[in-house]
Amino acid sequence: MRIISLWLLVSVLPLLTSPVVSAEPLRVASINLCADQLVLLLADDNQILTLTNLSHDTAGSYYYEKARNFPANKGYSEKILRLAPDVVIAGQYTALHTVKLLTEVGLRVESLPIANSIETLIDNIRSVATWVGQEERGQAIITDLQQRLLNLEPVVEPRPVAAAYDPNGYTSGASSLRGQLMEMAGWRNAATDAGIESYGQLSLEQIISMAPDALIDSPYSPGTYSRAQMTSRHPALLKAGLDPHIISIPSRMMICAGPWTVDILERLQEERIRMTTVQ
């Protein structure tokens, strides 16, 4: 018994204390695009082992420039295993089999929930900061964001109407992040008027008869063709006078949430104030 405890003292204790002593950085692998963004935001460069290949994409990744400094993975477990990260960050609903496999072989896998509100975004920043061992940096960012949220202008009635408008007329209602941003920025959401809770479709005819004051789009790959993308260029919309008030948010800001989400919020508020003072 004594020998065992002695052995524990000699072999395990140094292991437990070594991160503190040698300040060996916690090394991270991300297999989810939105996790990539928060890792890039919070971790030190020497902590990042790999990010998803999507993180290099200009249309989908906010920190694509910085991400290109790091090797990409396609979410295959073999590559992740070979890198032997201290923590793997995955999306909540993506690559379930990979996550299961990585957990079974003994890696620490954390899953990041989808941020469908500002509150979840802040929770996510806090979680990732903890996972990568950068709590202080995370807290500083959160404090800054919360301050910016407090500085928002009050909502003035009557609120102008806006509709989020994606290819094929897809739109977001109140229980989505985009819906919440519109609400907080002082817009009335046309999707809510049409009875859409989270995601749904608005037909061209609905859009025209509701005549929203603005359309919010985030073109994912401008310049390419699909019938879906043509809906937002239909002459009926131009004729209805919706054309001048398209608020275009780059898709790399819309696909994943991050501190830039508050930039969107401020932009939407600015557009709303401009519109209500002009009229």
Partner: peptide
């Protein structure tokens, strides 16, 4: 292979036909 990310889902639109919008 099309550059647009929405293209893949439009096969059904071409094989069945559609006059919307």
């Amino acid at each position: 292979l099309a550059p647009s990310p929405f293209a893949v889902r439009e096969l059904v639109l071409w094989t069945l036909g559609d006059i919307t919008d």
